[in-house]
Each structure stands twice: as structure tokens, then as C-alpha cells.
């Protein structure tokens, strides 16, 4: 009886294998012809839209750039589709954020790096430049939101440029100049943000957001941050955390709190209501763009747009 069962399994597996082979053959044919068409331009795949924007500005029209995560997608909980897999496989080069932003996908990408040009844009950042999240003794976990510190983010341009040149050495001159120009743009942007934030009276420089995304921003631009939720959305904040935040807002006379595009605004509502009831109404501003760029084609759909929008929103809200 069991012998029959085993045979049946074996047969069905073989049958299925044959089916794959037939299907696979067809697919391979299709993609080969498709590949022939797009063979001209190399394909660069990025995970977040911020990285995608950076790439686009450096390669301009020399390569096609696709970001797997579109506007509004939370990178901590990105669920890959079959098409994403195909895109990664087809890519000539892949860039990801690293520092565990992409979660389990990161281990996969690291493995893939052995056989394909896959790079973390943050790979050259020293540990001392990063903000640590865990206590000593535990495996070090760092805050991944480096792109919100424009100066730090700009230092990643060099890495990207160097890797791109490895892909096609003939690009050296153009990539070099594009990268230099972008670096200048980002540094200019960095100064802009600094000025914008400095225009807020020092006593009012407190940024209250939904989740802990703005630590780098805080460090770079001299503004305090407070948030309700940690990095992981499974974890919960407690009642005390809400009341502590309310206390902070009331005692420091904070004028506005900021919701984020990729996090449910509901959680900050409790804080807002609490403040209202304590006769200290706060405005709800935003949504800030923390984990993803804004809508494609809109002014916030680029990195520059995102950062400017954030800076303006914050300064207007707190002044």
C-alpha cells in the first residue's frame, strides 16, 4: 500500500517536472526575445524609492532604473511579488539600503552579491556614523533611516558612483560629473534644511512624529525628536508612552505634531486628543515623508522634493 503511495508521489513529481520543462521552455523563449529588445540599456534595480531617485540622477539616461518599493510603501513590511524577483534577476546591478531596513530580504541580497553586483548604498558608512538602537551586549542593531540626514546620504553618492563605473568603465567621465553635481545639490539641500530648521526658535525645536524615523534628522539639524512607536510595527506603545508624550508637548509648549505617510495616523491622534483635553491644542501637520518618496510625478516624488517638503512642513508647523 505504501509502495503504491510512494510510486504515485514519484510519478506526480515527474509529471509536474515535465510540465515545468515545457512551460519553462516557452517562457525562456519569450524572455530571450524580450531581452534582446532591451539589451541596449543596462537595468538597475533599487529597493527604496529614495535610492532609485539617487540612481536616476547619477545615471541619467545611461541605464534604466526601477525601484521595487513605490510611493507610500513601508520598507519594513515590503512584500515582494513574483515580478520583483524577476526584476532582481534581470538587473545588471542592484542597490539596497542595508542596515536591516529591508529585513530578511537583506540576507538574500547579501547572498546574491556573491554572484551579481549587489550593493548596499550604506556599505561605506562607518559604524560610528550610525545611530545605535540596542544596548551593548546584544547584537548591534542600527537605525536604518540614514537618508533623512542629507549630508550623510550625500556621502553615499561616491559609493554608488564607484560601483556604477565598475559596471561600465566607459561611463567614468559622465558618472563622475553627474555624481559631483548631485553631491553639490545634496549639500546645498543640506544647508537649506539647516537654515530652515534654524529659523525655528530654539525652544520650539521639538519634532513629534509617529515612529522613530527621524533620529538622523535630529542629530544632523539640531532638533529634538520624540515618537510614539519604535521601529517595528508589531511592538506596541503603552498608555504611559502616550501620556509622557502629552506631558512633553504641554510642558515644552509644542505647537504641532507630525504624521507620516507610511504610518497610520491614528496612533498620534490619541496624543492630540490628550493635549486638546489638557487645553493645549496641537495642530496635526504633514504627512511627512519618512520611509518613502511622495507620489510619482509630484514635486515630492524626488528626494530633493521630499526633503524640502519635510523641512518646510516642519518649520512652518513649529514656528
Amino acid at each position: 500500500m505504501f509502495a503504491i503511495k510512494k510510486c504515485a508521489w514519484l510519478c506526480s513529481c515527474l509529471l509536474v517536472l515535465c510540465l515545468f520543462a515545457c512551460q519553462g521552455e516557452q517562457k525562456a523563449d519569450k524572455t530571450e526575445t524580450a531581452g534582446a529588445k532591451t539589451e541596449k540599456k543596462p537595468l538597475i534595480v533599487t529597493t527604496t524609492s529614495m535610492i532609485g531617485d539617487m540612481l536616476r540622477n547619477i545615471v541619467k539616461d545611461k541605464a534604466e532604473v526601477i525601484s521595487l518599493m513605490g510611493p507610500g510603501v513601508d520598507p519594513h513590511y515590503f512584500k515582494a511579488s513574483q515580478g520583483d524577483l524577476k526584476r532582481i534577476r534581470e538587473a545588471d546591478m542592484v542597490f539596497y539600503n542595508g542596515i536591516f531596513l529591508e529585513g530578511k530580504m537583506e540576507a538574500i541580497l547579501e547572498k546574491l552579491a556573491k554572484s551579481k553586483p549587489v550593493y548596499a548604498v550604506t556599505e561605506e558608512l562607518g559604524k560610528e556614523q550610525l545611530i545605535q538602537m540596542t544596548e551593548d551586549g546584544l547584537e548591534k542593531q542600527y537605525d536604518p533611516h540614514v537618508w533623512l540626514d542629507t549630508k550623510l546620504w550625500a556621502s553615499c553618492i561616491e559609493v554608488v558612483a564607484n560601483r556604477l563605473i565598475e559596471l561600465d568603465p566607459s561611463w567614468k567621465a559622465e558618472i563622475g560629473s553627474n555624481a559631483a553635481a548631485l553631491y553639490k545639490t545634496y549639500m546645498g539641500l543640506h544647508k537649506e534644511v539647516k537654515t530652515e530648521i534654524n529659523s525655528i526658535p530654539e525652544a520650539s525645536r521639538i519634532l513629534v512624529t509617529s515612529h522613530d524615523a527621524f533620529n538622523y534628522f535630529s542629530r544632523s539639524y539640531g532638533i529634538d525628536v520624540a515618537a510614539l512607536q519604535g521601529v517595528s510595527t508589531v511592538t506596541e506603545f503603552g498608555l504611559k508612552d502616550v501620556t509622557n508624550l502629552v506631558d512633553l508637548i504641554v510642558s515644552k509648549n509644542v505647537k504641532a505634531v507630525f504624521v507620516e505617510s507610511s504610518v497610520d495616523p491614528k496612533h498620534l491622534n490619541a496624543v492630540v486628543e490628550g493635549c486638546k483635553k489638557r487645553d493645549h491644542p496641537v495642530a496635526v501637520r504633514g504627512p511627512l515623508l519618512s520611509d518613502a518618496l511622495g507620489e510619482d510625478g509630484s514635486s515630492e516624488g524626488t528626494y530633493e522634493g521630499m526633503i524640502r517638503f519635510n523641512a518646510k512642513t516642519i518649520s512652518e508647523g513649529l514656528k
Binding site: M69, G70, P71, G72, V73, D74, Y77, F78, K79, S81, G83, T233, S261, S262, V263, D264, D291, A292, G294, E295, D296
Partner: peptide
């Protein structure tokens, strides 16, 4: 996620 609608974040949460 593929439609690119920016307001879709946090839909599952």
C-alpha cells in the same frame, strides 16, 4: 503596491 498610489501605506495595519 504596484499601482503606486501613495496613500496606500499602512493599509494592512
Amino acid at each position: 503596491q504596484k499601482t503606486g498610489n501613495a496613500s496606500q501605506s499602512g493599509l494592512d495595519s
